[in-house]
Simulated scan of single mutants.
Amino acid sequence: MPPLTFTEPSALVLIDNQFAFNHPTHWGPSRSNPSFEKNLSALLKVFRAARQRKPAVPIYIIHIFHSSLEPGSQLHHSKTDQIKPLDFAVPASDGSEPVFWKSANSSFIGTGLESFLREHGVRQVFFADGSLPEGIRIERGRVVLVADATATFAKGEFDAETVHAVSVASLSEEFADVFTTEAVVEALGV
């Protein structure tokens, strides 16, 4: 796998970082990755710092939030206290970080995410989220999963850490290059 560089337009995409995912039992009996919040906060901080340096190549930060159409969902649009962003993942108040809302399991269905990436020539996308990202490809580009800045929940008889590890392994190499928060922070040189 090639090393991380920021020589092409890049985007950090944060998905589903909302209060509803803190529900103690709705999503499963346990969540993986106790370092999720710390790592995602670190990524957001270094991407924002890199943008402040006004790099020669654009860096974007994009937030995707879920608003369910299902009345019983913890993410139903009527539950405004549950669909709001987690404190550590609030979009910048100056409007510089695009926000898209979805009602499907994919961040590309019914949102402007794909159009935004294409219009801005983004060729390297970093996914960090509260659920694991869909397997996607960027034409002539790179998809990076920051594995320790993602989390998932226990499913059936499988504990959360096993579900997380299998999900990451399933995406690795075939659909995404997998890196750690530390590697991304180091590559950004912030």
Results as ranks from 00 to 15, higher is better:
M1L: 13
P2D: 09
F6L: 14
T7S: 12
P9W: 00
P9D: 02
P9C: 02
P9G: 01
D16K: 05
N17G: 14
Q18S: 11
F19E: 13
A20G: 06
A20M: 06
P24F: 12
P24I: 11
T25K: 12
T25P: 02
W27C: 08
P29T: 09
S32I: 04
S32D: 08
S41T: 15
A42F: 07
L44R: 14
F47L: 06
R48V: 09
A49I: 05
Q52Y: 03
K54S: 10
P55F: 01
V57L: 05
I59H: 01
Y60C: 03
I62K: 01
I62C: 08
T80A: 12
K84Q: 14
L86K: 13
L86N: 11
F88I: 07
D94Q: 11
V99L: 14
V99F: 09
F100W: 08
S103L: 08
S103Q: 13
A104V: 11
N105R: 15
N105I: 10
S107L: 08
S107E: 09
F108T: 04
I109Q: 14
I109M: 13
I109P: 00
T111K: 03
S115G: 10
L117F: 00
E119C: 05
H120K: 15
H120R: 11
G121H: 03
V122Q: 00
R123P: 05
V125N: 00
F127I: 07
A128G: 07
A128Q: 02
G130T: 05
G130P: 02
P133V: 02
I138W: 00
E139M: 06
R140Q: 13
V143E: 04
L145R: 00
K155D: 06
G156N: 12
A165V: 05
A165K: 07
V166L: 15
S167Q: 14
S172V: 02
F175T: 01
F175Y: 06
F179L: 09
F179K: 03
T181R: 06
E186A: 14
A187P: 00
